[in-house]
Design a protein around this nucleic acid. Structure first.
Length: 426
DNA sequence: TCTGGGGTCCTAGGACCC
DNA sequence: TCTGGGGTCCTAGGACCC
């Protein structure tokens, strides 16, 4: 054990109201206006501009509940457009990588960046430079928090969001207790609803109080994750930067339907089509799945129709990423859990126990497997070139009456030349 | 009428073994 | 009356994140 622990400096870069900012990029008219972006099916509000927040519109709230405020204040509404957000996200991340390749892309709008190589006195200015460059090159405004651990950089980021400069560094501050005291316990990274309740019962209301609680008590009455959080608040790094993107362990495709489904045939089409998407996804990452879970449920908010939720897991004899096999399993799983007389609201497919495909060869591979692999590859290539589901399986349906509702889409796709907005030059 | 989607990790408890 | 005592491995479900 060494005592010469070298101090880390970790920056958390978070894009401000990311989805809203993406929509604003191509629509200058909404720059100063209140804007919200809706989840799939135009269900909930998942991104809000500051102006929308100021109106009291809540995060995660169903759209229909906020409709009055929205109409009254001329709030601009958008259906979510993930191909646009994904594309802008990649541009932001690429820009960040210029400062250091030791980066962990944490989510579509967040990344941890290792700034340990910069002297203490400089990190705040480096943060400001990162912020400026990202804004200049991508048009996306960010908030940046810098500290010794990931959890503390989250705290710093939380404070940075409310500051004009958008950058806060806790590096070099001897006593951060007065700062932590102002951070409510439920705003600490890793503390959710349940833990907040538990901490409140034990007299812990802010980050400072958790930091000063004994580790043994935390571990005993909660778990290792909680004690890790407390350690990180003390400036001891326990959660490493995951700079190499490890392969995922599961892959979910699930959706709510644009309208309720009651008959088996339509549900089957939906499930088959999700299974198809999921197999395409894992093939693109050279993964194979050992098992598949099929999930269906009715709406939990409409009890008068009766609630039903069920799932079925099926193991493949040999791990696979073959669409035909996966769709077949998905349909047979659905048959075993489908019950007549319910209004289904959502279905999904999860592929799990994923592992490397080794180019589709294993101990038992045969000529026939090779043929199937080639077939899958050419399906993927065709769909990549000519658009999703150019080639599909008949069971996935053609009409797709159950497809999502998307009333307010900006229809901008920066990855598709023909849907790019046009600029008039006089 | 209308309430998202996609991940990870940990733990308790059951099955099984000697 | 009293019904062992460890281990390991796996899974379902919970809690958390964005």
């Amino acid at each position: 054990m060494s005592f010469t622990q070298c101090t880390k400096k970790i920056a958390l870069i978070d894009c401000n109201s990311f989805y809203v900012s993406c929509e604003r990029l191509f629509n200058p008219k909404i720059r100063k206006k209140p804007v919200v972006v809706l989840s799939n099916n135009d269900g909930c509000i998942i991104s809000r501009s500051n102006e929308a927040k100021a109106l009291g519109i809540k995060m995660g709230e169903p759209y229909f509940k906020e409709k009055n405020i929205i109409v009254k204040n001329d709030v601009q509404v958008f259906s979510s457009n993930y191909s646009l957000y994904g594309d802008i996200s990649r541009r932001v991340m690429r820009t960040l990588k210029r400062f250091n390749s030791d980066i962990e892309i944490y989510s579509i709008d967040e990344a941890f960046l290792d700034l340990s190589n910069f002297p203490d006195k400089e990190v705040e200015n480096v943060g400001k430079e990162i912020r400026n460059i990202v804004l200049k090159w991508t048009g996306i405004p960010t908030s940046i928090g810098i500290a010794k651990t990931k959890t503390l950089s989250k705290v710093a980021n939380h404070i940075a969001k409310k500051k004009q400069s958008g950058v806060v560094s806790l590096i070099g501050i001897k006593d951060i207790d007065p700062i932590l005291e102002k951070v409510e316990i439920n705003d600490v990274w890793g503390v959710g609803k349940q833990l907040t309740k538990f901490y409140h019962q034990n007299g812990i209301y802010n980050a400072k109080q958790l930091k000063n609680k004994s580790n043994t008590w935390i571990k005993k009455s909660s778990n290792v994750l909680s004690s890790r959080t407390a350690m990180e608040l003390r400036g001891v790094s326990c959660i490493n930067l995951e700079t190499t993107s490890s392969k995922r362990k599961s892959c979910v495709v699930s959706r709510s339907f644009g309208k309720r489904i009651e008959n088996f045939q339509e549900l089957k089409e939906a499930v088959a089509s999700y299974a198809l998407n999921a197999s395409e996804k894992i093939r693109s990452e050279s993964l194979i799945a050992k098992s598949i879970t099929i999930l269906v449920r009715t709406s939990p908010f409409q009890s008068r129709y009766g609630f039903y939720s069920n799932s079925k897991t099926i193991d493949f004899p040999i791990a696979t990423n073959n669409s035909i096999e996966i769709v077949k399993a998905a349909v047979s799983g659905l048959e075993s859990i489908f019950k007549n007389g319910y209004r289904y609201q959502k279905a999904g497919v999860m592929l799990s126990h994923l592992s490397n495909s080794n180019n589709g060869k294993n101990l038992f591979s045969s000529k026939k497997d090779e043929k199937i692999n080639n077939l899958m590859k050419s399906i993927d290539n065709t769909n990549y070139r000519y658009g999703r589901s150019t080639l599909s399986l008949a069971s996935a349906g053609i009409q797709k009456k159950w497809n999502m509702k998307k009333e307010y889409s900006s229809k901008i796709d920066t990855a598709d030349f023909y849907s790019l907005p046009t600029i008039k030059v006089n």
